[in-house]
């Protein structure tokens, strides 16, 4: 039995502007278990990113509850672009979260060193971001997030700044790292193929105000990596169903 670590109950969010009220999210409830890889998809502007911002406490919710299974629950947030600081070395970038949280002790530094080593960045530790490829930068950004040993990873369109080829390679890469480090993930994306190939569970949101439309539990032949999943018949089946759910009008 999987351990429930995060519960979202009847979450709603409204924005207020001069022109009135905009309901972004309405009554979303979701349970996240340890080790889950959940992808949230929806049409653009439907409030998927808002959901992550609220979980990460970057924005306030209008109603509902978010319940963590422990008091010092740590959230790791990974953004659209790598957001690496040009003026810091790769190692200092990776240590940034720890530094902000005043957790830069020798044990944690060692952990980051080990992550950099495991994921082939050992030779780039003292280099600056501009000397790295797009994929490597994204890996550094992931390590920066992993460094604070989060209980959950929130990925906000993590690959959308990359070109298609790099994107496939990097998502494969990130997927392997996440599985290896055994992390729980909520990923927001507008790319259906990405959602289907990476996640165990795909949550489809409706147009604004976002409600949960359907939840799919992905079933693939055992142990396929994202790129291999894309070649299966299940992949096409899910793609077709979710595409219908999204109800895209051109």
């Amino acid at each position: 039995m999987k351990n429930n670590i995060l519960q979202i109950k009847n979450l709603s969010k409204s924005y207020y502007t001069k022109n009135g009220e905009i309901k972004a999210i309405e009554n979303i409830s979701l349970e996240i278990n340890e080790g889950d890889f959940i992808a949230v998809v929806g049409s653009s502007g439907c409030g998927k990113s808002t959901l992550l911002s609220i979980i990460a406490a970057l924005e306030e919710k209008s109603a509902g509850e978010i319940i963590f299974n422990k008091k010092d629950f740590v959230i790791g947030y990974m953004l659209q672009d790598d957001a690496l600081f040009d003026w810091l070395t790769i190692k200092d970038n990776a240590l940034l979260g720890l530094e902000i949280k005043h957790l830069k002790n020798s044990k944690n530094i060692e952990y980051v060193d080990q992550l950099l080593k495991t994921y082939d960045l050992d030779n780039f530790k003292l280099k600056y971001p501009k000397e790295l490829s797009g994929g490597m930068k994204q890996r550094v950004s992931l390590i920066r997030t992993l460094a604070i040993q989060p209980d959950i990873l929130l990925l906000d369109e993590p690959f959308s700044a990359l070109d298609y080829q790099t994107r496939l390679a990097v998502s494969e890469d990130v997927y392997k790292i996440i599985k290896k480090e055994n992390k729980t993930v909520i990923m927001v994306t507008h790319d259906l193929a990405e959602a289907i190939s990476l996640a165990d569970k795909v949550v489809v949101l409706s147009k604004r105000p976002s409600k949960i439309k359907t939840i799919y539990n992905m079933k693939f032949p055992n142990n396929l990596t994202p790129i291999l999943k894309r070649q299966t018949k299940e992949f096409n089946m899910y793609y077709e169903q979710i595409w219908k759910d999204l109800d895209v009008v051109v």
Partner: peptide
């Protein structure tokens, strides 16, 4: 984006100024 990143680590105003 970078401000958002630091906030997600729980940075306060002074840290954001100094670090970013």
């Amino acid at each position: 984006n970078k401000i958002k990143l630091l906030k997600s680590f729980g940075a306060d105003k002074i840290q954001i100024l100094k670090k970013l």
